[in-house]
Amino acid sequence: MPKCQNCGKKWTWGQTACRLITLGDSLRCPHCRKEQFLTAAARKKTGTSVFAAPLIMFISVAFGIDPFASLALFAISFLFILGISPFFIELTDERGPMW
Results as ranks from 00 to 15, higher is better:
40 A>M: 14
82 L>P: 05
70 S>F: 01
15 Q>D: 11
21 I>Y: 07
33 R>T: 09
61 V>T: 03
89 I>S: 02
71 L>Y: 05
49 S>V: 05
78 F>N: 06
16 T>F: 09
59 I>Q: 01
21 I>G: 08
62 A>Q: 07
21 I>V: 15
37 F>P: 08
37 F>T: 06
91 L>E: 12
72 A>R: 06
30 P>L: 02
42 A>I: 09
31 H>F: 12
21 I>Q: 13
53 A>P: 15
45 K>I: 07
87 F>T: 07
90 E>F: 04
18 C>Q: 12
93 D>V: 00
75 A>M: 11
39 T>Y: 08
39 T>I: 08
89 I>T: 04
57 M>H: 00
35 E>D: 15
59 I>V: 15
60 S>D: 07
80 F>L: 14
18 C>S: 13
45 K>L: 05
18 C>A: 15
20 L>Y: 05
68 F>W: 11
72 A>D: 04
66 D>V: 02
37 F>E: 08
26 S>E: 13
21 I>R: 15
33 R>H: 11
81 I>W: 07
46 T>D: 02
36 Q>A: 13
58 F>D: 00
16 T>I: 06
91 L>S: 07
35 E>C: 06
40 A>Y: 03
47 G>N: 05
53 A>M: 10
30 P>T: 06
91 L>W: 11
29 C>H: 09
33 R>E: 13
47 G>D: 03
62 A>M: 13
49 S>K: 01
60 S>L: 14
67 P>I: 02
20 L>C: 04
58 F>A: 15
23 L>Q: 11
63 F>S: 08
37 F>S: 13
15 Q>F: 09
86 P>D: 09
83 G>Q: 12
68 F>Y: 06
